[in-house]
């Protein structure tokens, strides 16, 4: 399990629709803002990279000190962004793939408006469980 990890889903309109701090490290107060800042800065890189490859998993696209940003872009251009300090590439890939499946299930829910915040507690629980399993 990674000591620090922050997972964010960004909609195609660049709006964050889901956020989870999934690390085991003791929370510093400014950590959340710092993580959001790094991920936000990485969005530009993602935009360029996304069209250069047909793969959904873009691997690590950006780094900040010891923190690495890994990104997965779905076909609908929703971006899953993970900020982490571990070097577990396979685990991260599996994590993204399984979250993608969860995300599709959420999208298929007729009562969920695509591009709106994911408030489902079921989704949250599942994502955190996946994070424990793979990261």
């Amino acid at each position: 399990m990674a000591t620090t990890a922050c997972f964010i889903i960004v909609s195609r309109n660049d709006i964050p629709i889901y956020e989870a701090e999934v690390g085991v490290a003791a929370k510093r107060e400014d950590a959340a803002q710092l993580h959001q800042f790094i991920l936000h800065a990485a969005l530009d890189v993602v935009q360029d990279l996304a069209w250069t490859t047909s793969a959904m998993y873009l691997k690590s696209v950006d780094r900040f000190n010891e923190l690495v940003v890994s990104v997965y872009v779905t076909a609908g251009h929703t971006r899953f962004m993970l900020l982490h300090d571990s070097r577990n590439d396979d685990g991260i890939k599996s994590f993204f793939q399984e979250v993608h499946e969860l995300y599709i299930k959420t999208l298929l829910n007729p009562l969920y408006l695509p591009g709106s915040r994911i408030t489902s507690s079921h989704f949250d629980t599942k994502v955190r469980a996946l994070a424990r399993k793979y990261l």
């Binding site: 298929l108 009562l111 969920y112 408030t119």
Partner: peptide, 10 residues
């Protein structure tokens, strides 16, 4: 009800 989950406002 496959896929369906009731959001808080419904």
């Amino acid at each position: 009800v496959d896929f369906v989950e009731l959001p808080d406002n419904c």
